[in-house]
């Protein structure tokens, strides 16, 4: 899918467009932040990225001709985050593990033993996934996106969303099962 924010944007929308922007895009601020937070694995970075993405969305809103505003915004957020990750990786250069491809090494038993509650456990396991897997989990399980929306946000062909999710979920299940003995899991 083409980049939704190419060309020159406008800094101030006319009043009609402003209303349209506020109606269509503003309801998805939390979705934007949540995706950035999980892609960048840091609240602080996510704050900057979400702000940058929203500014870009605003500037290029005239290029949005209807359709799924959440998917449109999340696509911009995702692009912003990947640019961010890319820049960061170049800055840290060779010493940094290439997590695009490999993800972080599986969380160590120590980390996971410390991650005692459900929330920390899941968070550690999610962080251990490569971003391409992490994002489909976040979009599907946290954001409730359909396969079609996932395809348009991530530019994965619609036909392979299911198999990507399958691999992502398998990795997440493995990361979680590294975590705690079975009886320690909740019984809700």
């Amino acid at each position: 899918m083409s980049n939704p924010v190419q060309g020159k944007g406008s800094d101030v929308l006319d009043s009609q467009e402003q209303v349209r922007f506020e109606t269509l895009v503003l309801p998805h601020l939390d979705a934007a932040f949540n995706l950035a937070r999980w892609l960048l694995r840091s609240r602080a970075d996510a704050e900057d990225a979400a702000q940058e993405a929203l500014l870009r969305a605003y500037r290029f809103f005239h290029g949005f001709h209807g359709g799924d505003a959440r998917a449109w915004l999340l696509q911009i957020v995702r692009n912003t985050c990947y640019t961010w990750l890319d820049k960061n990786r170049k800055a840290k250069d060779m010493t940094e593990f290439n997590e695009e491809v490999h993800g972080l090494p599986s969380p160590s038993p120590e980390t996971l033993a410390i991650a005692s509650n459900d929330r920390d456990r899941l968070s550690e396991a999610l962080k251990a996934l490569p971003p391409r897997y992490r994002e489909v989990i976040v979009l599907r399980e946290l954001e409730g996106c359909s396969y079609k929306e996932i395809a348009s946000i991530t530019s994965i062909p619609i036909g392979t969303v299911m198999s990507t999710l399958s691999r992502a979920r398998r990795q997440l299940q493995m990361a979680l099962s590294n975590v705690a003995p079975k009886e320690a899991t909740h019984g809700v």
């Binding site: 939390d30 937070r37 704050e47 979400a50 702000q51 459900d118 456990r121 909740h186 809700v188």
Partner: peptide, 18 residues
């Protein structure tokens, strides 16, 4: 897996300040 995720509540909202 889904119920583990639901229980953990990983969704993070934007802070009011931001």
């Amino acid at each position: 897996l889904r119920s583990t995720i639901n229980v953990a509540q990983p969704y993070e909202k934007m802070s009011p300040a931001l």
